[in-house]
């Protein structure tokens, strides 16, 4: 099965970190991705620009409407994701527990629902 790990954290905290700390945090994510890849569990993963770079689109009165800012205005923001392959939820949770994202915030795990 595939699981999407959604990494939520408080972006403003990231901005308060010293350059060296940011490098360390980033290195932790890179190492995690490498470990996933090594185990054949990595399907994909990226980090996202802060929500200040977010734009949302919906249709109103039959016309696309473009709005500035993120969909949900919350304390924690989606900052990145990993898409992993795991035999079951326990295996996915074991990978999640190792993700640096659980120290920086909260990681939500969702099973992929394939369209077949």
């Amino acid at each position: 099965m595939q699981y999407l790990l959604m990494l939520y954290s408080d972006e403003s905290r990231w901005n308060t970190l010293a350059e060296k700390e940011r490098e360390e945090r980033t290195a932790a994510y890179v190492a995690y991705a490498e470990a996933l890849a090594q185990a054949g569990a990595l399907v994909g993963g990226e980090r996202l620009h802060p929500v200040s770079a977010a734009t949302r689109v919906t249709v109103k009165d039959g016309r696309p409407q473009v709005l500035d800012g993120p969909y949900a205005d919350s304390k924690e923001q989606l900052g990145g994701y990993f898409l992993i392959e795991a035999p079951d939820l326990d295996a996915a949770l074991a990978w999640t527990a190792r993700c640096p994202g659980v120290h920086d915030g909260i990681v939500e795990v969702r099973p992929i629902w394939p369209i077949d």
Partner: peptide
């Protein structure tokens, strides 16, 4: 079912 919770003894 959807989350793939395993049926196994830990």
């Amino acid at each position: 079912r959807a989350a793939g919770i395993p049926f196994r003894t830990p």
